[in-house]
Simulated scan of single mutants.
Amino acid sequence: PNILRYKGILDVKGRDERFVIQGVHMIRDGGFQREWKAGEPRWSRLVLIGRHLDRAALETAFAACVTQ
């Protein structure tokens, strides 16, 4: 209930498409969109808007999802 809004683009291992996610409160939507363009840097970014969020805990949790 403390996350009010989120949106992001994720680079998912083993997929050539970008995963786009967004949501407001408990309503969420997401799916694979266009392919990454040739030579385009692949990255993941998630933006959260909320209250009383533990930034350090969130960063640690998301960092644990990263694979090389």
Rank of each mutant, 00 (worst) to 15 (best):
V47T: 11
W36T: 05
H25I: 05
R34Y: 10
G8P: 04
G8C: 11
L10D: 04
G30R: 14
L10M: 11
L46N: 02
K37N: 13
V20D: 14
L58M: 09
E59N: 06
E17N: 15
W36M: 07
A63C: 07
G14S: 11
I21Y: 02
F32V: 03
E40H: 15
L53T: 01
P41L: 08
V24E: 04
A61L: 06
G14H: 08
R15E: 15
D29M: 09
G31R: 15
Q33E: 13
A56P: 00
A61M: 08
R51P: 01
R42T: 11
T60F: 07
E59T: 02
G23V: 07
N2C: 04
R34T: 04
V66H: 07
D29T: 05
E17H: 11
I27C: 03
Q68E: 09
K13S: 09
A64L: 03
K37W: 12
Y6G: 01
H52Q: 09
M26L: 06
Q33Y: 05
R28G: 08
W43D: 08
K13F: 08
I21L: 14
F32I: 03
I27R: 09
G50R: 00
R5C: 11
L4F: 13
T67L: 06
A64S: 14
I27S: 07
T60D: 13
F32H: 14
H25E: 09
L53V: 03
H25M: 05
P1A: 13
C65N: 09
F19L: 12
G30S: 10
Q68M: 09
V66K: 01
G30Q: 13
V47Q: 02
I9F: 12
I3D: 00
I27H: 05
A57F: 08
W43E: 08
E40D: 10
H25P: 03
F62S: 11
S44H: 02
E35R: 15
K7S: 10
R45A: 13
V12F: 04
P1C: 01
G23T: 04
R15I: 00
D54Q: 09
V47A: 03
D11C: 12
R28T: 10
V20P: 00
G8V: 09
D16L: 10
E40P: 05
V24L: 13
V12Q: 02
E40R: 14
G14C: 09
S44L: 05
F19H: 12
F19A: 07
G23N: 01
G30W: 05
E35D: 15
Y6L: 12
R28M: 10
G14Y: 10
V24T: 07
R51W: 09
L4P: 02
D54S: 09
Q33L: 01
K13M: 10
R34L: 01
F62N: 04
Q22E: 10
A64M: 03
K13E: 14
R55H: 02
L10Q: 00
R28D: 06
L58R: 04
Q22K: 06
W36P: 00
R45I: 06
I3C: 02
R28W: 05
H25W: 07
C65F: 02
I21W: 01
Q68D: 12
I21T: 15
A38S: 15
L4Y: 12
F32C: 07
S44I: 12
G14V: 01
G23P: 02
Y6E: 02
D54N: 13
W36R: 13
Y6M: 11
A56H: 04
D29K: 12
R15A: 14
Q22D: 07
R55I: 00
Q33I: 00
V12Y: 01
M26K: 06
